[in-house]
């Protein structure tokens, strides 16, 4: 192996092992979100949605589809990536990654790539499930995939940071439970932002998830709470922030190298 070349074999080894680890738990990984999503459709789409007006010209059952997919995409990306890096830390097998001829960036790419792949697969499965309950049509399929990929990568990066930061399984669970779930529920997954009274509507504009859900919904139905440019801009900003934090972790060896 030459001095400057990428260690593609090494990255592939991590990626494949991570995917294999996920496949070992394929039943939990797929069944849980699919069942949860199906329940949302039955309760919100079927029971409540039938008594609601359409939102912005879109049937309520169909309206919540992008939000639900986004919700899964966010939580799955974070949990996949955080467990992916936390587990070797916990079992101390991380020594092997640290002693390998692999750059920090390559390790991040492999772990984040595997986490993002899995959450995208899951999002697609949920999308397929949704079509069984409500009529879904996708106006901008390319943009839909683009939003999926960008969001899953951005939040897998975030999950990777959480996994490095966490020193216990409790800490690993706390960020998704205390930060991400509330932001997602208040992020317009189940409603349009303009359905909220003031000041909540304005406050919502500070919630990053609003931009993701809005952009994703726009790719389905051509309508969103905020402009698609703002949505893209925010996702990029979030990704840049995560990369900056990872750069700092690399520079300082934070919680990886004493």
């Amino acid at each position: 192996m030459s001095r400057s070349s990428l260690n593609v074999t090494g990255m592939w080894a991590i990626y494949r092992t991570e995917m294999a680890r996920m496949m070992r738990t394929i039943l939990q990984s797929v069944a849980t979100p699919v069942i949860t999503t199906a329940l949302y459709f039955i309760v919100f789409g079927g029971a409540i949605g039938s008594r609601m007006q359409s939102v912005g010209g879109v049937d309520y059952g169909a309206f919540i589809v992008p939000g639900l997919i986004m919700l899964s995409l966010l939580t799955q990306s974070i949990s996949n990536a955080s467990i992916g890096i936390y587990f070797p830390k916990f079992t101390k097998t991380i020594f092997e990654i640290l002693s390998a001829p692999l750059s920090f960036g390559e390790a991040v790419l492999a772990y984040v790539g595997a986490a993002a792949t899995k959450s995208i697969l899951l999002a697609l499965i949920i999308l397929a499930t949704a079509t069984a309950f409500v009529p879904v049509h996708i106006l901008h399929p390319v943009w839909m995939v683009a939003f999926m990929v960008l969001t899953s990568i951005a939040f897998s990066l975030f999950g990777f940071i959480v996994g490095i930061w966490a020193e216990s399984f409790e800490q690993l669970a706390v960020i998704p439970a205390l930060v991400v779930t509330p932001l997602t529920f208040l992020g317009g997954a189940f409603y349009a932002i303009d359905m909220l009274p003031e000041p909540w509507r304005t406050i919502s504009l500070f919630n990053p998830v609003v931009y993701l859900v809005s952009g994703f919904r726009w790719s389905f139905y051509g309508v969103g709470d905020v402009g698609v440019g703002a949505s893209l801009g925010f996702t990029a900003l979030f990704m840049a922030l995560c990369l900056a934090i990872l750069w700092w972790i690399f520079r300082t060896g934070y919680r990886l190298k004493p």
């Binding site: 192996m1 090494g10 080894a13 092992t17 097998t93 020594f95 092997e96 990654i97 390998a100 001829p101």
Partner: peptide, 20 residues
């Protein structure tokens, strides 16, 4: 320090790949 759920073969092959 080992991934206790992996097989011997898989974990050894993984190490070789990791080192390029």
């Amino acid at each position: 320090a080992l991934d206790i759920f992996a097989t011997i073969w898989d974990t050894v092959v993984f190490s070789r790949g990791l080192f390029g």
